[in-house]
Structure formats: structure tokens, C-alpha cells
Write a protein that binds this DNA or RNA. Structure first.
Length: 323
DNA sequence: CATCAGGGCCCTG
DNA sequence: CAGGGCCCTGAT
């Protein structure tokens, strides 16, 4: 692992579309804890790579829900061009879906008697990915067939070995390695980190990305079905990983198709207050009610329960989240 | 101590 | 298209 200290700083502002919910957008309590970012109310830190160069980001809330404004501080090493600053700005807007037009979704939410309080509470929240496609792919792979504790272990050991530690703004934030950095790393090296069969996926995915076989930008232009088709071609990407990528990286709001068993139990409680409802019924009901915003609507309700979990004990939920 | 399933996916038949 | 196997870990 290498460490970089970023002393210099440049600032700019972004005005997200209104309404906007800062904390709901920049912090997702349902995600497993990692060293890739840090958050407190109104403030957020992470690393970002633009054209393989690495920067530190501090993002702060400087507006209100109906008059949104965020301040971005870019921390850098030696120098930074205006063009890089502009690229960073555009990338932040994309990753956190800051230009989203959620009018139709918000109208839909208003007519939802049952969950309107939740939608209102999180009005303006975006589905987002702090990482690029390769980064979230790594995250998704360590999620596969593992409990939360194991996932955290795998992610940390990978970052400790191949990541970059950034020091800026009195924070230590990790950045995921570049795919080509694993060029000289063998599958066995990866296996020695106790990540199991995922070593093969990560090795092969990294090769593909390093060789430029995947065009992340091009995928942003595709519709959901075609984007899914392209993602599923990647080695190690099945229906669940594709769903995560489509929703979080590509902001496809209607990806409520694949429901994993552990999610099914939580949905059953959330939507029916029952321990077990068939995945087909859950999917059909949600699709009927929220249409092309199916996954986004579920995301609001899902994250809300995990926010609540920070302060209150929710017994049925604790049982379903295997640590 | 042994067994087993888990926040999936690949491969085979 | 169904089912076995995969890495490792904590739970039983």
C-alpha cells in the first residue's frame, strides 16, 4: 500500500437539481462500513481518480432542500489543471445523480398514502455510487456469497495490499487500486488474502479493464436492458451484481427484478409485516405501484429503515442482517 | 470436533 | 434449466 499526502486545495460549487437531500445522497447506512469514505452530517470525504490521477474530495452541504448548493474541495499533490477540475465536477454530478429530474417520482410518492412520510423525509435523495464501475465491481464481488463481516475483511485486506491511502483534510481515506496495478499479481497472490474463489473474478476483471475492453462511458448512454446485457458479459457478474451496478453506477431506477433471499425477508417485513412473502408477489406489487421507479422507491424505504437502525433497535431487522 | 449456509456465479450435463 | 462446486468463517 502506498500513502499520499495531499496538501493543496481548490474549491468550487455545484447546484444540484431541487429538491435535494444531502445526507441521504452522500451517506447510505445500508452499505457495509469501509475505508473508502467518511461522513458526518453535512460533510463527506472520499477519493476520486480522474484519468488515473488521484485526488481527495471533501463535499459540504451549503444549501437547503429547496435551494441546494454543495461546496467541493479538491485536494491534490503538486498541481491541477482547470480541465481536471471540470472533469471532477462532471464526474461528481454523474456519480451522485445531481442533475436528476425526480418530479414524476416525487408526484408518485405523494399519492402513496402508506409510505409518503418516508418519501417526504428523504425528499430529494439520489441513488448514487461513490466509486466508478471498476470500483463498485470490486465491492460487489466481495459482497457475493458472504456475510457482512467477511465482506469487510476482504475489502480491507485488498485495500491494505493494493489500495492507496490518502491523507487530506485531517482524514485518512483509501482509494481502490487501478486495474493495471494487479497486472503482476497472480490469482494465487489474491487467494492468499483469503478472498476465496473471488480471486479468479478479480484477476480476470482487472485484466479486462486494464486492456480497455470495457467502456464505462459508453454504458452510460445505453438503456437498461442493453446496459444489463453488457454488464452480464463480465466474468463474475450475474443478475444480482448487475442489478447493483445498474442501479448505483448507472442510475437505472427500474431495476427491481432480482430479489435475493435475504432481501426478500426484509422486504416481506417492510411491505407486508410478515416474515415471508414470495419474491414474485413482492416484485409484482412494487412494479405495479411504482412503475419505472421501482428500485428507486424501494431504495428510499430500504435506506430509511437502516437510518432508523442507527438510533433504535429493530429486532426483526437485526435477525436478517447477518454480521 | 464436524457440518453447514451464507448479501452469487460459473460450469456441466 | 437444474444442480453441484467454490473459498472462508462463524454459528450450531
Amino acid at each position: 500500500m502506498q500513502t499520499k499526502i495531499l496538501k493543496n486545495k481548490k474549491e468550487f460549487f455545484i447546484s444540484p437539481t431541487s429538491p435535494f437531500h444531502f445526507d441521504g445522497t452522500f451517506h447510505k447506512p445500508s452499505h457495509f462500513p469501509d475505508k473508502l469514505d467518511d461522513w458526518e452530517t453535512g460533510k463527506y470525504w472520499q477519493a476520486i481518480r480522474i484519468d488515473k490521477k488521484i485526488f481527495g474530495l471533501k463535499i459540504e452541504n451549503k444549501g437547503e432542500a429547496q435551494n441546494p448548493k454543495i461546496k467541493v474541495s479538491v485536494f491534490y499533490d503538486k498541481n491541477i489543471t482547470d480541465k481536471k477540475i471540470e472533469n471532477i465536477k462532471q464526474e461528481i454530478i454523474w456519480r451522485f445523480d445531481l442533475n436528476a429530474d425526480l418530479k414524476k417520482f416525487n408526484n408518485l410518492a405523494k399519492s402513496d398514502k402508506r409510505f409518503y412520510p418516508i418519501f417526504k423525509k428523504w425528499l430529494g435523495m439520489r441513488n448514487s455510487s461513490s466509486e466508478d464501475l471498476y470500483g463498485l465491481l470490486i465491492v460487489a464481488v466481495v459482497l457475493q456469497n458472504a456475510t457482512v463481516r467477511r465482506t469487510v475483511q476482504m475489502m480491507n485486506v485488498l485495500l491494505d495490499n493494493y489500495g492507496t491511502k490518502l491523507k487530506f483534510d485531517c482524514k485518512e481515506i483509501f482509494a481502490i487500486w487501478l486495474p493495471e496495478n494487479l497486472g503482476n499479481v497472480s490469482e494465487q497472490d489474491l487467494r492468499n488474502l483469503k478472498i476465496g474463489y473471488r480471486a479468479k473474478f478479480i484477476k480476470r476483471l482487472s485484466q479486462n479493464f486494464a486492456e480497455g475492453k470495457i467502456d464505462e462511458q459508453k454504458l452510460r448512454l445505453l438503456d437498461q436492458e442493453n446496459a444489463k446485457k453488457e454488464l452480464m458479459k463480465l466474468y463474475g457478474v450475474g443478475p444480482e451484481t448487475a442489478r447493483i451496478l445498474l442501479f448505483e453506477v448507472y442510475h437505472q431506477y427500474n431495476t427491481f427484478d432480482h430479489i435475493a433471499p435475504w432481501q426478500q425477508k426484509i422486504y416481506s417485513q417492510l411491505f407486508y409485516k410478515k416474515p415471508f412473502v414470495s419474491a414474485e408477489k413482492i416484485r409484482d406489487d412494487i412494479k405495479k405501484q411504482y412503475g419505472k421507479y421501482s428500485m428507486l422507491a424501494v431504495h428510499y424505504i430500504w435506506e430509511d429503515i437502516f437510518w432508523r437502525r442507527k438510533n433504535e433497535k429493530i429486532d426483526w431487522l437485526e435477525k436478517e442482517i447477518r454480521l
